[in-house]
Design a protein around this nucleic acid. Structure first.
Lengths: 129, 129
DNA sequence: CTAGTTGCAAAGAGTTTGCATGGCG
DNA sequence: CGCCATGCAAACTCTTTGCAACTAG
């Protein structure tokens, strides 16, 4: 769908790739990339979402106003874990995800879509600290 | 924390109790309650959240801008399932929730907080349709 | 050269806040 | 009667959009 390879697009993609284990707001991306305007960020993010390369989710504490984006390529098969303390995003492996989904489908007849569910909690590292 | 029992507060509470299995936006509440102003809705919702009577979550498709609130009283012990089609909110029972959480803690050392994680998917009724 | 992109500024949408008025206790 | 809560409007924040200028292919 993107037709031209502009330098803004490239910067954005590189940025997202580098921060693939974080949930990031459009505002923060624009702040970190001085050569990309806020509107270009929004437009490209929307485009990437349509392409299925990233997907939206909410901030750790659910109170944040801004949307956050998380890379979704090859992540459709499993759920994610988001730490409320450090904001780090963990990937539950496909195997495990499938098990949980099966377990819920069996007892509740509800089929969870792993691609857009995020489990919130605290990661091992933060709990220790 | 609420000091007076105003009629707006009462209407809001009744409304939330009645819609306890849905995720509802402030805008919609204000629309459905002509005697309660939008700002009163926001202020009381914030108040209820501070009291722990409700908690925030995102809309079914994750694209909705408006925040949504879900009654949280007696719901801290389990996770919720939100249907992307009809928006209905289902309660995973405490037992089952605990099992899932244990299972994740065991394999990932990540402790999920049931109070604010919502699993998205499609319910049995909508899948049949 | 042509169509897709960008940047800026203005428009929208949702949420918060200041302040005078009104109502609960 | 005194203090809290409401309503309205203004202020804010985040996101989207119109449009002219720019640029990748």
């Amino acid at each position: 769908m993107p037709q031209y390879q502009t330098k803004q697009r490239k910067e954005l993609l590189d940025y997202l790739a580098f921060h693939s284990d974080e949930q990031i707001s459009a505002r923060r991306i624009a702040r970190d990339l001085p050569h990309v305007s806020l509107s270009a960020v929004y437009r490209n993010l929307a485009l990437l979402e349509r392409e299925g390369k990233i997907s939206r989710c909410t901030n750790a504490d659910g109170r944040e106003t801004s949307y956050r984006f998380v890379p979704g390529e090859a992540c459709r098969g499993h759920m994610h874990l988001s730490c409320r303390r450090c904001g780090h995003l963990y990937h539950l492996n496909d195997e495990k995800s499938k098990l949980l989904i099966e377990s819920i489908k069996a007892s509740e007849a509800f089929s969870v879509d792993p691609a857009d569910t995020v489990l919130y909690g605290v990661c091992a590292r933060c709990r220790r600290a």
